[in-house]
């Protein structure tokens, strides 16, 4: 990660880095670059909050259920958009079909691991899990649901699973 770049600049584009078998990145991946902006992180937090408030306002759901549902909806959405959908709607010069087999998560920051954006996306489900655990009063059933959906989105984010398709699921 480039720590010398001022905060004001929107994106970090590794120009001239020879990370990927001799490919020089001369462009950006418009599909992933927007996730790097701080405004998007704020919007993410606001969106989850709104989701939670909407669920809380449903009359027959109690607080515990609302929290677990928030967590589950968030995690499933996170899984679909970051780990299931592949490719990019904007195929740029840089791409030349490169993103066709990569999930959105794998496209972030040209595949660089543990960048700030990735850390943020790691952190979000963990914080939600801790909050949900607290508000469900550590109920075992809620715990199982929350933990399993959290693992669903945390495990595919690990560097060890970068580009790995278990049993070839979702490979092409």
């Amino acid at each position: 990660m480039d720590r010398t770049q001022p905060k004001g600049l929107p994106t970090r584009v590794p120009v001239g880095t020879m990370g990927d078998g001799g490919t020089t990145y001369s462009g950006v991946n418009p599909n992933a670059v927007w996730l790097n902006s701080r405004g998007i992180w704020l919007s993410y937090v606001i969106a989850v909050t709104i989701l939670h408030l909407v669920l809380l306002s449903i009359p027959f759901l109690n607080v515990a259920q609302a929290w677990t549902l928030t967590n589950v909806v968030h995690n499933i959405g996170n899984y679909i958009f970051l780990h299931m959908l592949k490719g990019t709607p904007w195929e740029t010069n840089w791409d030349q079909g490169k993103s066709r087999l990569l999930t959105h998560w794998e496209q972030i920051d040209f595949g660089e691991q543990f960048t700030t954006t990735r850390k943020f996306l790691f952190l979000a489900p963990v914080i939600l899990f801790i909050l949900a655990s607290f508000y469900t009063k550590y109920d075992p059933l809620h715990f199982i649901i929350n933990l399993s959906t959290m693992l669903l989105v945390l495990i595919p984010k690990l560097p060890q699973l970068h580009g790995v398709r278990i049993f070839g699921i979702n490979k092409y």
């Binding site: 990660m1 880095t17 990370g19 990927d20 078998g21 920051d109 040209f110 595949g111 660089e112 691991q113 543990f114 960048t115 990735r118 850390k119 790691f122 952190l123 963990v126 899990f129 801790i130 655990s133 550590y138 075992p140 715990f143 933990l147 560097p159 970068h162």
Partner: peptide
């Protein structure tokens, strides 16, 4: 329950470690 506390503590330790880990390229 104890198991819950253990899991949360592990999770927090892990995530803090992750936040301080350096970025790198897999290749």
């Amino acid at each position: 329950p104890v198991y819950h506390i253990v899991i949360e503590v592990l999770l927090i330790v892990w995530i803090i470690g992750l936040l301080f880990s350096k970025s790198y390229r897999i290749q």
